[in-house]
Design a protein around this nucleic acid. Sequence first.
DNA 1: AAATGCTATGTAACCGGTTACATAACAATG
DNA 2: CATTGTTATGTAACCGGTTACATAGCATTT
Lengths: 345, 345
Amino acid sequence: MRHQIMTASKAEPATIRDVARSTNLSVASVSRALNGHSNVRPDTRARVIEAAERLGYVPNAAARSLSLARSHAVGVVLPDLHGEFFSEIVRGMDRVASEKGYQLLLSNMHADATMAAHAMSAMRGRVDGLIVMAPQLSYELLQKTLPASLPVVMINSPQGTGHSNLRIDNAQGARMTVEHLLATGRTAIVHIAGAQDNIDGHERRAGFEAAMATLAPHLPARVIEGDFLEATGTRIVAQLLADGAHFDAIHAANDMMALGALMALRDAGVVVPDDVAVTGFDDIPLARYMALTTVRVDLAGVGARAVSALLQTIEDADARHDSAMIKPELVVRGTTAPVIAPTMR
Amino acid sequence: MRHQIMTASKAEPATIRDVARSTNLSVASVSRALNGHSNVRPDTRARVIEAAERLGYVPNAAARSLSLARSHAVGVVLPDLHGEFFSEIVRGMDRVASEKGYQLLLSNMHADATMAAHAMSAMRGRVDGLIVMAPQLSYELLQKTLPASLPVVMINSPQGTGHSNLRIDNAQGARMTVEHLLATGRTAIVHIAGAQDNIDGHERRAGFEAAMATLAPHLPARVIEGDFLEATGTRIVAQLLADGAHFDAIHAANDMMALGALMALRDAGVVVPDDVAVTGFDDIPLARYMALTTVRVDLAGVGARAVSALLQTIEDADARHDSAMIKPELVVRGTTAPVIAPTMR
DNA sequence: AAATGCTATGTAACCGGTTACATAACAATG
DNA sequence: CATTGTTATGTAACCGGTTACATAGCATTT
C-alpha cells in the first residue's frame, strides 16, 4: 500500500489514467492521441497533449515494453576493455542507438562465463537484441549462453554461431604491416604474438605467417609467443638482444607489446627505425605519441555498425546477416619510416 | 523430453504460466517457489525449479519491473568523455552494480540539453535511480531536467540541486601541484586554464589562484585562458616563449594541455624540468609515458562510489545524502623532478 | 426512411509477473 | 468433538500501458 504522507520530492509520477481523468477521456483515447494514431480529433489530441504536459506525464517504459513486447533497448556485453577500446566502441553504439530511439543496457563480460550467462539472461524482457563481443569465449560456450529467442550481433567472436558477426580483419592488418616492412627493406622480421586463446591474437599471428609465406617465402618468419602486455614486449626483445639474435624488424600483435619492445631497444641503444623497425596493432592514443607505426581500426564505426545491423534484424525479422570484415588502415609513423623519429629519446 | 521439432529462431520464451502448467501448480506458487518465499513445501519448490530449468524459464524483466515498481537498473548519463575517463568510471560502476544485482542503462549526455532531457525521461520506469555527470550544465537547467520522482546522484556537477553530489576536489589538486612546484623552487608559475564554463576548468583555475595567494602571495600568479585541448597548450606556450615571457613552471588545467606545452618547450629547446617544470591534471595513461607530473583521481572509485550511494538512497529512502569530495593524489614524475638531482635555484 | 459507412471514442482483455486474501487440509487445543 | 491455528496452495486483483472490438453519432447512399 502506498504511503499518503509524502514529501514533494517523491511525488508519484502521473500515469496515463491521470491524464485520462484530467481530460474526461478514456485511457485508450489518450494512448492513441499520444502515439499519433490517425483516428483522433485534432482538438482532442491537443487537449491530451496539453494535459500530459501539465501533469508531467511520461509513459512508463516497463508497462510499454510488456504490452508491446518491445523495449527499444539493446543489451551490450563487452569484455574487460580499457580506454579507447571501450569508449570508442560504446560511443559509436550510443550514436546510432540514440539516433534510432534505442537505449543501451551495458554489461561487462566478466571473465567468469556463468556470470556472463547470468548477465545475459537478466536482460530477458529488457532488451530487443544483444550485441556480444567475446574474443576469448569458445564457440560451444557461446552457443549455450546466448538466448535463443533474441537477435544477436557478435563482434570479433568465433565464427559459426549463426549470428551476424562483425570481425576486424586481423589478417589484412598483419599483411599490411608485413608489406610495409618488406617495402622498406626489412629482411628479418620477428612477430611477437598475442595470447593464442584470444581470437585477435590468433588471427594476427596467422596473418603474419600467411603474409610472410606469400610475400617473402625465402625470408625467415620468426614467431615468439606473447600475451599482449607491455612488459612482455620488453622482456622478449631484451632476450632477443641478449641472445644476439639477428633481426631488423619487430612486428608486434598489439601496440602495448610494441611499446614494450621500443623500451627494450632504446635501453639497449638500438636505433629505431635505422637498426630495427617496429610495428604495432590497434593505434591506441599512445601510439601517436610514440610515433609507432601501427594498424588502425575505426572502433566507433564498429560499434555503430553493430547497432545498425542489430536494429535491422530486430525490425525486419529476416534481414540477411551481416558478417562483414572491418577493414583496418595502416598508419605509418616514425618507428618504421626512416624519416627521423622526432619523439622520445 | 525435449522438443526436437522447432525452428530455433522463433521459440517464444517460456512464461511463468508455462511453468505452472507443467507442474500442475498455480502461477502464485511458482512465483513463490522461485523467489524463495518460506511458505512453499521443499519438494514443491524442487519440482518448480526443475521445471523452470527444463523449460529454460527466465522471468520477464518488464513484467517484473511493472509489478514490483522496481527495475533493478540504474541510469547513467555521462557527457562526451574519452578514453580512460569513460571506461574507468563505467568500470567502477559496473563492478558495484553487477555485484548488487543491478544493471546499467547508459546514455551519453549529448551536448544538446533537450536531447539529454529526452534521454532521461525515456528512462522512466526503466531505472530505479539516476547517476548524472554534468560538468557543463547550469544549475537551473539541471533542476528542470532531472525527474523529480527518482533518486539521483550527481558527479562533479553544480552544487545545490539537493541531490548527492560526488565532486573531485579540484581545489586540493591544484593546491598540491602548486605546493610541489614551490617546494622544488619554482618562482614564476603560469596556469593554463581549462574552459571556464566547465566546472573542473573553473575550479582548477580558482584553486590555483587560491593556492598561490595563500602559499606564495609575493610571487606572480599568471593565468592564461585555455580550453583543455592539446594544441592550445602548444600554442600558448609557444606564444609565451615568443614573447620572451619569464616563467619557470607551467601549471596546466589538464594533462592534454600539459603535453601540448611539453611539445612547445621541446621544440624550442627548453629543457624540462631544468629550465621549466610542467604539471598536468587527470593522470591520463599518456602522462606516465611522458613522465608528466600530474594529479590522479581514482575514476573507477568515483564510479563505484556513485553507484553505492545511489543504491543506498534507493533501498533506504531516507539515507543521508553523500556529497563528498573525492581526494586526488599527486603523482610526481620527470617533468618536475630532475631525474638525477634536484637543481638548486 | 432505412441501410450503410465512416469517424471518434469507450470497454475490456491482455502482456507476465507479484501478492493480498481466500481456502482447504490437517494438527493442536480445550 | 468442536474450535482454533498453521501451513501450503489457489484465486484474482493489480502494476501501466496498448489495442481488438463494440458502440454511438453523423453523413451518405438507395
